[in-house]
Design a protein around this nucleic acid. Structure first.
Lengths: 160, 160
DNA sequence: GATGAAATAGATCGTAC
DNA sequence: GTACGATCTATTTCATC
């Protein structure tokens, strides 16, 4: 787990608000020189704290206004079945994300599709074609809120 | 819904791979001049297709290696209760995202916490303190895969 | 709309503290 | 680890097609 001091945390906060802020803006917002913030952000990437930079698409504008979470039970839940399904599901064009979970189900697939008809067809035609799929439970997503800022749970440590 | 021609789609694909690609790289990758790609990306932002740019944090490195999806049932599921709970849940520091859903439950809260002890305490101490929470079901997330590229479901349209 | 050149602004690196 | 300043590179604007 990475050690993150006050400056690292401040930079992460700023970048979560807007990942395209220029290095100069970051430096000004955190009260250090541009070369320092540049070096720190590079270090955060190298240490794997920052995995990359993503674009936040509006799923409605992109023709996928209907979202759903589809809980899937795999039987038998062998490693072979789980891994095969995970690979298959995460590659579908409808898939936004895949959660591999414990509990009543083995997977939760987050999908975004053009309409309800498409969603229904996806569930009853495509998902159930997989022989390892034993059970499917669909929940329509009315709204998906992402937290704007995730704070590190690490206590701040001094690095100087 | 936005109309997206071939160039728009190509730019979205490139930006989803790495949202920090420079405008020059985008232009080279899509075969247009830098000023054209700059203008197109700006248009995508103005039209709301691109909602913003996010940093992809590694939740483990940030001290939150344990993820869970917590299904919550609200009783009665009145607008007042639903909205109050949504606001409360989406502001918690443990929360990564909140899904408002149909079906057996009303919410699915995606949380990331330091360890299982913390998760358990979160569920039995904090969630159940809310009077409108009637039922809670926790699934631990072993793995969360995000789709690297979401393709528009819109058929390409000509804009020239 | 798209282009290419010119002006503005930012990223980056060497050097010093 | 940090700051300053010079250099290199990218962004942005504008006249033109």
């Amino acid at each position: 787990m990475a050690e993150l001091d006050e400056l690292d945390q401040a930079l992460l906060r700023e970048l979560q608000r807007d990942a395209r802020r220029t290095n100069r803006e970051l430096a000004a917002a955190t009260g250090v020189s541009p070369s320092t913030s540049l070096e720190r952000v590079r270090s955060l990437r190298e240490r794997g704290v920052i995995r990359g930079f993503l674009v936040d698409l509006d799923l409605e504008e992109v023709g996928r206004p209907v979202q759903a979470l589809i809980a899937v039970r795999i039987r038998p839940p062998s490693r072979a079945n789980i891994e095969a399904f995970r690979e298959w599901a995460s590659r579908l064009p409808e898939t936004v994300g895949v959660f591999v979970v414990s509990g009543g189900e083995d997977f939760l697939i987050h999908v975004a599709v053009p309409d309800n008809k498409f969603l229904y067809a996806f569930v009853i035609d495509r998902l159930t074609q997989r022989p390892e799929v034993a059970d499917v439970r669909t929940s329509v997503v009315y709204e998906h809120i992402r937290s704007p800022v995730i704070e590190p749970a690490t206590p701040a440590r001094r690095r100087r």
